[in-house]
Amino acid sequence: MVEKKIKLVRTDEKIYEVGILALQGDFELHTQALKRTGHESLLVKTPDELKRVKRLIIPGGESTTVNKLVDIYNLRRPLIEFGRKNPVWGTCAGLIMLARDSNDPRVQPFELIDIDAARNAYGRQVHSFSKKSKISLNGRSEEIELVFIRAPKITRVGDNVQVLAELDGEIVMAREKNILVSAFHPELSESTLIHEYFLTM
């Protein structure tokens, strides 16, 4: 009798193409955006969950809160090590967490990309705004609504950082090797261009 081998994969061991850091913030919106690209994602709250994803999105939220929670849950070291090898994308607060310097003692960033950031640099909520702009990535161009919410500015970029988008003289999206940052929220727009770009990194 031929024994049939059935390999069972426990759902809690499944490896995901992409994970979203879900300590606090708009991680749901990234989940939905990734769904529109046909990808299931894993919400990451623990070091064990981080081991089950190939790339990670750090969403928008409050960087002071995320900074606190990262330490409470012993995620700082694992996240930095993860980001040295794997693609990581930070939007808004996520950009601040990935930067070299946050210009604020309340937030100690991971120093994974050679940029400096300034928190809430456009001002308080009444100065939040959105603007349509053309973004070109991987030979594809799309007009995207760029939504800035109490957004940070990139105040310095290192020599090896590639500028991917600018708006009114400010750098709003950049990449260095496997690290991508955007000051705006692509997950709040209809377009999935940037999510698809991240999936090719």
């Binding site: 879900a22 913030g25 708009d26 991680f27 749901e28 409050e62 607060a93 939040s128 109490r150 709040l188």
Partner: peptide, 14 residues
């Protein structure tokens, strides 16, 4: 309105 709801989205899980 999208920007207003957007800030509320950022406060989720907090």
């Amino acid at each position: 309105y999208k920007i207003k709801v957007g800030l509320a989205e950022m406060l989720k899980g907090g």
